[in-house]
Design a protein around this nucleic acid. Structure first.
Length: 382
RNA sequence: GGACGGGUGGCCGAGCGGUUAAUGGCAACAGGCUGUAAACCUGUCGCCCCUUGCGGGCUACGGAGGUUCGAAUCCUCCCCCGUCCA
């Protein structure tokens, strides 16, 4: 049995769906799952202070990005400043993405080889190389609680042949990362965890093959990556279904980069414990607020003189104190407070959804919850 | 009173005889955003018409005339605005 840096306790299991509720015991505190992890790419969830994240929002874990922090301000600097937690004054858990997604999204600036990725910085064009080993080292320097193995996230659509090649490379990289990490873990006596990432594009056979290979690593947890890259929504869920049953039940599963609010219960129903997505924060800044009654595009003229709160059901600072008219005004005026208030609300919405989901699982009523969520989502269809 | 410089679509501002309903920018409006190159990007943006495809009609560059096949662009007068000189 592998030495797990991360204890995962399953506290309740849905008798009908694949959903389960648990607690992830990280070096920086417990994380109740299913969990949504707000994205703080550059060591900040844009627009929200850690005081709010840990206080009102009560987020237990954030995402940060290896690629961005490596380029700026540099992993070594962050290490010298006491590590990422101290640097950004976030005492709770942090998961760092490996930079694999940037390999995908910066496709014009990179070259993939078996050894790793050669890419150009989007900041100054400098050439850099990421290898499975180097990204582990960077993440160790950052001091994240959960590190991700370097992977290749293919675009969509892609041929079966290419998807297979990328998947096999991702498996090789995951092994290399795991071996390197195992050495470093013993050497440094660090409590961090490392997740490999299941790839295989939208081909169930490749997803399964990948999962089988990765499970042999006896990793701390498993991520399902390469979703939400432009494919039809049902495909994402199918890929999770194809993968999930092969992953060890005792380990956390992380669906990377998903999803829309109404999709969250669907992933959980398919056995996903962890998710992250830029939607709540990015869409907030771009004028789209998620509410219990669907999306409110606060930038629309119809809210110009709307005195009501963004979401009457929401108890966040924004909803308790400000009108839609005021928020729209702030958005129109380009005021920085808008981003802050809007992001606070959207992230709260996501975290609230996850808390509702968890409560339903624990109470044994998740199937009913899921049905209600589906009905509500269907009612909001145009 | 005189000398210059100006008045362009919601605003600023190009154009200075013809493919100009009129470059740009801003504003406005709509849409998009899924491990964040994103406080970003795309589209629309005079009015009316069969949504018919680079389609048709009307009204437009301070006002009124004029020159010309053709004018926001040239000429005349008038009205405003700015700067300077008395």
């Amino acid at each position: 049995m592998a030495l797990h840096g991360l204890r995962f306790e399953i506290s309740a299991v849905c008798p009908v769906t694949r959903a389960r509720a648990g607690v992830l015991h990280t070096p920086h505190g417990p994380v109740e799952t299913p969990v949504f992890m707000p994205v703080g790419t550059q060591a900040t969830v844009k627009g929200i202070a850690p005081r709010e994240l840990a206080g009102e929002l009560d987020a237990r874990i954030l995402l940060a990005n290896t690629y961005h922090l490596y380029l700026r301000p540099g992993a070594d600097l962050i290490r010298r400043m006491g590590g990422l937690h101290r640097f950004m004054s976030w005492p709770r858990a942090i998961l760092t993405d490996s930079g694999g997604f940037q390999v995908f999204s910066l496709s014009g600036l990179r070259k993939i080889t078996d050894e790793g990725v050669i890419f150009q910085s989007h900041l100054d064009g400098d050439t850099h190389t990421f290898t499975p080993e180097s990204t582990v080292d960077i993440q160790i320097a950052l001091g994240s609680d959960i590190m991700m193995a370097l992977d290749e996230c293919p675009e969509y659509p892609v041929s079966h042949e290419y998807a297979r090649m990328a998947m096999e490379r991702t498996v090789r990289w995951a092994r290399a990362a795991q071996v390197h990490f195992a050495e470093r873990r013993v050497e440094l006596a660090i409590p961090q965890a490392l997740f490999p990432i299941v790839q295989g594009s939208m081909f169930a056979d490749l997803r399964r093959a990948c999962a089988v290979e990765l499970v042999e690593l006896e990793a701390d947890g498993y991520a399902i990556g390469g979703l939400s890259v432009g494919e039809p929504r049902p495909l994402s869920l199918e890929m999770v279904e194809a993968t999930e049953e092969l992953l060890p039940r005792a380990r956390p599963r992380y669906a990377m980069g998903v999803g829309m609010p109404e999709e969250l219960p669907e992933y959980v129903a398919r056995g996903v414990d962890m998710m992250d997505c830029v939607l709540p924060s990015r869409n907030a800044r771009n004028g789209c607020l998620f509410t219990s009654e669907g999306a409110v595009r606060i930038k629309q003229a119809r809210y110009k003189d709307d005195p009501g709160p963004v979401d009457p059901q929401c108890g966040c600072y924004t909803c308790l104190n400000f009108s839609r008219a005021y928020l729209r005004h702030l958005f129109q005026a380009g005021e920085i407070l808008y981003a802050s208030l809007a992001t606070l609300h959207n992230v709260k919405r996501y975290l609230d959804i996850m808390r509702e989901i968890r409560r339903a699982i624990v109470e044994g009523s998740y199937p009913q919850y899921l049905q209600r969520a589906r009905d509500a989502a269907a009612a909001e269809e145009p």
